[in-house]
Amino acid sequence: MADAKVIPFDEDRPRRRGAVRKVRAVPDPAEPAGSSESVEPGVGSGPEPAPAGAGDGWDRRIAGGLAFLRRRITGEYEVDDFGYDKELTDQVLMSLLRPLYDKYFRVEVKGIENIPKEGGALIVANHSGTLPLDGLMLQVAVHDRHPAERHLRLLAADLVFMLPVVNEVARKAGHTLACAEDAQRLLEAGELVGVMPEGFKGIGKPFGERYKLQRFGRGGFVSTALRAGTPIVPCSIVGAEEIYPMIGNAKTLARLLGLPYFPVTPTFPWLGPLGAVPLPTKWTIQFGEPIPTDGYAPEAAEDPMLMFNLTDQVREQIQHTLYKLLVQRRSVFF
């Protein structure tokens, strides 16, 4: 109980700022018809607070919603080459994730100024949590907290694009397959790209190994950033490790289902769908100092030694920040 009294001011402030923003970005009334996304039951209980401005505000919102609805059902909206549907992401998908971000995980963001205002950059983050909620929260964090409201384009595993419905939503939310071609194309187009190089090794690791960074693939992300000449922004996410404490892995079942792992948590699969509700941990996302890559010669991307060194540098920085954040953390849930 004594814990609860010593919330530092700087920790509280960004949260309140988020609440103000939320009123501005209240979802359209047309939304629920649009999609029945995977909103966790626990989240549904806390509906959006009605803003203070009554009558006029509602009229305007209905008008906006109808205009949105009209554009959607006549198909008059635009998607980019990757299938990214900016309008749908901003108006629907983000609004669905925001309660989870603001109310459930109470994400605190540090070092947002390390993300450049414009131009390409590669955000490299640790990966954890059995389900890739950390990527989605990172996307909301970058969009809501960055002064330029930048959109994060996540690189996702091929499993995402093999699953029906999931692949469709992922593409519309601006995600694409984690391959060098797509990453380079996005970076060269000046987009902000997010990658979690640990992949399944990170997200599917047992609870006992939490916050221990796994191998960073073969470091392909470094050579891609080098080729595109964009900075690398290391990012550490604390809190996602404990949402589904994975105490076991049903490997045979995973192999049968064609999945990289089949998580067994204290609640899943014992409680059925209820077991899929994540624990309400308190999250911190910290962006570190960008690592510039424009000082290297073009052929440097072919130099394996340099790639390993840079990969290690990024990895060390993320691991170091993780430990620092963990020391600062008072409790998993507050």
Binding site: D81, E181, D182
Partner: peptide, 8 residues
């Protein structure tokens, strides 16, 4: 599903 988004 394993192909890049844009083919050259």
């Amino acid at each position: 599903s394993r192909d890049p988004a844009v083919f050259t």
